[in-house]
Structure formats: C-alpha cells, structure tokens
Amino acid sequence: MTMHDADDVVMRRLRTLRVHDADAARLDRVRARCHAALTERHAHAERRRRRRQFVARVVEPALVGTLSAGYLVAMVFVLLRTYAIR
C-alpha cells in the first residue's frame, strides 16, 4: 500500500464516521428564538416602511404646501405693498 493509498483510506474512514444529532429540544428552542428574531426584524422593517410612506405621503406634501402657501402670501403682500405705494 502506498502512502497515497493509505491517505485515501484515512479520508474514506473519515467520511464514514458516525453522524450525531444535536439535542432536539434545544434545536426547537433555537428555531423558536430565530423565528421570533425574524418576526421582530420583519415588524421593524414594516414600521420603518410605514414611517417612510407617511413621510412621503403626508409630511413632504404638507411641508411643500406650507412653504408654497407662505411664498404665495409673501408675494401677495409684496404686490399689495407695491400697488399701495403707487
């Protein structure tokens, strides 16, 4: 038997080593913990998405509207003042 053959035998024996299972009860706990973390992550992402949506749909238009209205009012005042001076 050559050295290489001996090595192959070793590798074959390693591949046939017995496979052991982790504790099933603990696995269930881990799964539940990870699912809870995933749910929490999902909920957090959802909250963030809704906040962004609210900002995009309500806050931004309100801000732009307010600024535009302010600008318009200022323009009217300027016009009135200009005409009043005349």
């Binding site: 052991h20 696995l27 799964r31 992550r41 999902h42 992402a45």
Partner: peptide, 19 residues
C-alpha cells in the same frame, strides 16, 4: 427574512455544523 428559508437552511446544516 423568510422564516421558511431559514428553516430549510437549519434542516440542511444543523447536523453538519453540530458535528
């Protein structure tokens, strides 16, 4: 964040990782 995908990975790799 798909829980079913996580379960699939857990099923496949839990035993090799534990060993």
């Amino acid at each position: 964040g798909d829980a079913a995908a996580f379960d699939a990975v857990l099923e496949q790799f839990n035993t090799p990782l534990f060993n």
